[in-house]
């Protein structure tokens, strides 16, 4: 019985998880290592890598600050409407990525609310880098907040209150008391946020304009190559993202063991 269940579970995971993962690397390297390296160093690919890194470099820190602020307010204080706030923070999770892109087009697009004003001042948001960054920020808003809120709630307020009573200022309390306690949860949220920011496809696809070399992120570049039947190159670029995913999983597993360690020690 035990063996059957384990076997069944592993077959299911193989069909839907392991084999697809392996196939990415297989298809990427099928035509040889030269083709692989050519695909990932080609100029449009490099531009896509740059844009993906820029979007993540802006979205993750901003959402980090947001996550910390929201968790501080929600976890360390009691006020009315807390549940509503937590639900609002979860909103981007429940919205389809395509709709996330659509609403930014509705605000910043040519026919949008700010459209006429933006084109008067010659500022391009939609079909340009700022739009991509905004869409990336939207879809990754909840990640860090959702990690920190339960963590900080579980840790309570005694340590911070003790610090304040002993004369620490707000910032001192935060840096020296709260931050060390939440550092692993913070790291966990950051790597998840980063993985999503670099891999976002639907929302970015809507606001991007798909201009090669300018407004394509790595996932969009994969799509372009694939639609051109350039499979080896598409999988080569995709393998970079898959590698990122595996590194994310590795760091995540490491951080999780640290968090459990912290729980048993502290």
């Amino acid at each position: 019985m035990r063996r059957t269940l384990i076997g069944l579970a592993l077959i299911f995971l193989a069909l839907f998880l392991f084999v697809p993962l392996i196939s990415v690397f297989y298809e990427a390297l099928k035509k040889g290592v030269d083709v692989y390296f050519a695909a990932i160093t080609e100029s449009d690919a490099r531009a896509a890598i740059r844009l993906t890194l820029i979007a993540a470099a802006i979205a993750v820190p901003l959402n980090l600050i947001f996550g910390v602020a929201a968790a501080w307010a929600i976890a360390k204080f009691e006020f009315r409407g807390k549940n509503i706030l937590t639900t609002l923070i979860d909103l981007p999770f429940s919205v389809s990525p395509v709709i996330a892109g659509l609403i930014y087009v509705l605000v910043f697009g040519l026919q949008g609310w700010l459209g006429p004003w933006l084109s008067e001042h010659d500022i391009k948001i939609i079909f340009a880098v700022p739009g991509i960054v905004l869409a990336t920020i939207f879809v990754t808003v909840p990640f860090i907040a959702r990690e920190l809120i339960p963590l900080m709630q579980a840790q309570g307020t005694e340590e911070e209150e003790a610090a304040v009573i002993l004369g620490a200022s707000g910032w001192q309390t935060f840096w020296r008391v709260t931050l060390p306690n939440i550092k692993w949860g913070l790291l966990y949220g950051v790597i998840l946020c980063n993985a999503r920011a670099m891999g976002e496809f639907g929302a970015v696809s809507v606001v991007s304009g798909h201009i090669r070399g300018q407004t394509n992120t790595l996932p969009l570049h994969v799509e372009i190559l694939y639609n051109e039947y350039n499979y080896a190159a598409a999988f080569a670029v995709a393998s970079l993202l898959a590698l990122l995913a595996l590194i994310t999983l590795a760091i995540k597993t490491f951080v999780e063991s640290k968090v459990t360690q912290q729980k048993t020690n502290g």
Binding site: L21, P97, L192, M198, G199, P219, V222, L241, L246
Partner: peptide, 11 residues
């Protein structure tokens, strides 16, 4: 959770 959706799609 970690893999970009486009990569999953083509794979």
């Amino acid at each position: 959770f970690a893999l970009p959706t486009a990569v999953a799609g083509i794979a």
